[in-house]
């Protein structure tokens, strides 16, 4: 409880001043004066003519796509050509084509789903310039998109300029935070070197090669940008990525602080901090419910150990790193999947069935703080649907922030919401009934189904964590999840930007006694109910075939695997 309170409560407190700073950085009150003005001129000069004009939602969305297509190509080239490029002391060769596509899509979309082991496949140049660079700019894309959305909802038809916003987010928010956290990590014992792998002789006289590299720098933005891609294959279970209890605490806080601060930044830009407080509260309730469920379910022993002559009252310790404490595994599993981070400090495949359901719920809802910037954008989609339902229930035209929410906005919101469920459920169904998925499983039955369901959930939520136990570095998996990651990244940004552009042009309506308040407990309960009902209606059938069926089989037979 103390650990959960320290990490969740402490980070929630720190997110308040960070949100205030992010508002200053992304949406300065006087963008042409003082320090903000000098920075704006600097960022404008860096890009040139493209950054001088304020952009309508369509121009903003197109700029975002052009920029992300460009970083996709650059990242792709680094991985395809790494054998010819410098900073390759261990002589890494080019990756297979579909794996390059998957990895470039993964890091461009802020997912960091990894079908490779970094220390085996990537040169230092690929890690730093192909991947770590994308961890900054893909996260900055999410923050920029949220700032643009908020400006539109505040009534500004020009949403800002994407090229200026993405620089503000990268250089003023993510870079300073990453420098701070990287320093803490280096002090905490993470390697930070450009020397190649260490070659040592063990006490038994065996030659051993120990991979290392610029890990502290890589890890800081991995966590802060809700990226999640590890320097090493085992991610944050690796002693060089996460050596101690304290690096685990810092990592956990780094995972959720920027998504939390994004809610406050949103509230400040739209000028409705009480509304942001209600949204923050709804997210916190859902987050704590998942943490409570995961820690509770994981306190039961794993069925794999049933009948063995070992202590059965210490909970499920399979796949855990005990140097962090027993609750740290399920806590991290929830934090990393609630925020679209995707890093892991325990083996998710080894979680008890119902514990494994909690991370999946996090990825299905994808808005309980969510990814940097995009978590709040996803919550905005739920808000549009909630105010629409509330309006229908009382027979009034739905309004949000004093502007009417009409059929077009609701259709776009529903489309964005359906896209997420479509990618997960259709992808899972296709791979569950074909050798593309079935032949790559490590487990049969409901647990095998969960592995496929988790992989598509992770791809569509731009999370990047893996249930593992899945042989996912195949051409079908690489192509399917790569395509899903790109589509599921940008569709839920484009459509809300279109809604914001549409609402910005509407006349503000007068506040009357019949106006739906969005700053009170009633709205919070309505929003919470909307999220739960929509989430359950969409994903409960799939959950029953996977983790719930596995749990019931355990109860009935003792083992479902």
């Amino acid at each position: 409880m103390l650990l959960i309170g320290l990490i969740v409560g402490g980070t929630a407190l720190l997110s308040w001043p960070l949100g205030r700073y992010m508002k200053w950085a992304l949406d300065p009150q006087a963008p042409d004066a003082g320090a903000a003005g000098r920075l704006t001129r600097l960022f404008t000069a860096a890009v040139g003519a493209a950054s001088r004009q304020p952009q309508h939602w369509k121009q903003y969305a197109v700029s975002m796509l052009v920029f992300n297509a460009a970083i996709f190509v650059v990242s792709f080239a680094f991985m395809a050509l790494q054998q010819y490029l410098p900073l390759n002391p261990d002589g890494k060769t080019a990756l297979e084509g579909s794996l390059i596509f998957n990895t470039a899509a993964s890091f461009t979309s802020n997912t960091n789903l990894q079908h490779y082991s970094g220390e085996v496949a990537m040169s230092y140049l690929s890690q730093l310039c192909g991947l770590m660079w994308l961890q900054f700019v893909s996260a900055a894309t999410g923050i920029a998109a949220l700032a643009a959305l908020a400006r539109g909802l505040a009534g500004k038809p020009a949403l800002g300029n994407f090229y200026v916003d993405v620089q503000r987010a990268a250089f003023l928010v993510l870079l300073p935070l990453a420098l701070l956290v990287a320093t803490l990590f280096a002090v905490g014992g993470l390697p930070m070197t450009l020397q190649g792998a260490a070659k040592v002789t063990t006490l038994e006289g065996i030659e051993q090669v120990i991979a290392r590299g610029p890990v502290a720098a890589f890890l800081a933005i991995k966590q802060l940008g809700t990226n999640g891609g590890g320097f090493f294959g085992p991610n944050s279970t690796h002693p060089f990525e996460n050596p101690t209890f304290w690096t685990n605490v810092i990592s956990s806080m780094a995972i959720i602080i920027v998504p939390m601060a994004c809610v406050w930044m949103y509230g400040r830009i739209i000028g409705r901090m009480r509304h942001a407080g209600v949204v923050f509260g709804v997210m916190m309730v859902l987050l704590l419910a998942k943490i409570g469920g995961a820690v509770s379910f994981e306190s039961e022993p794993t069925q794999a150990f049933a009948g063995l002559a070992i202590e059965q009252d210490v909970g499920n310790l399979e796949g855990k790193e005990l140097r962090f404490g027993t609750a740290a595994g399920p806590l991290w599993a929830v934090l990393t999947t609630s925020t679209s981070n995707g890093s892991v400090n325990a083996m998710h495949d080894s979680l008890n069935p119902l514990t494994g359901l909690m991370p999946m719920i996090g990825m299905w809802l994808n808005a309980t703080y969510g990814g940097v910037g995009v978590g709040m954008i996803n919550m905005f989609i739920y808000i549009v649907i909630a105010v629409f339902l509330a309006g229908m229930m009382v027979g009034r035209t739905p309004e949000y922030l004093n502007r009417r929410v009409e059929a077009r906005e609701v259709k776009l919101a529903v489309l964005a919401l359906l896209a997420h469920g479509f990618f997960i459920l259709v992808g899972t169904a296709v791979f569950a009934v074909t050798p593309w998925g079935a032949a790559t499983l490590n487990n049969t039955g409901p647990h095998g189904f969960s592995e496929i369901l988790y992989e598509f959930s992770s791809a569509s939520a731009n999370n990047g964590s893996g249930f593992e136990g899945l042989g996912d570095n195949t051409v079908p998996w690489n192509l399917a999840t790569g395509t899903v990651m790109l589509l599921a990244r940008f569709i839920p940004i484009i459509l809300p930007l279109a809604i914001a552009g549409s609402m910005a042009r509407k006349r503000a309506t007068a506040v009357t006694a019949g106006t739906l308040g969005v700053e009170n407990l009633t709205f919070g309960v309505m929003l919470l109910g909307t999220i739960l009902f929509l989430g359950a209606l969409t994903f409960f059938p799939a959950a029953t075939l996977g983790p719930i069926a596995e749990h019931l089989l355990y109860m009935a037979e003792g083992s479902g695997r």
Binding site: F72, V73, A80, L486, A498
Partner: peptide
């Protein structure tokens, strides 16, 4: 250079651009 996979990625971005264009055409200009 596995060019086909690079082109696939760019085709997905083109598809997303198409989505922007289609949604923009549904704007009523109210």
């Amino acid at each position: 250079m596995p060019l086909a996979y690079l082109l696939l990625g760019l085709a997905i971005f083109a598809l997303l651009y198409g989505l922007v264009a289609v949604v923009a055409r549904t704007e009523t200009g109210e």
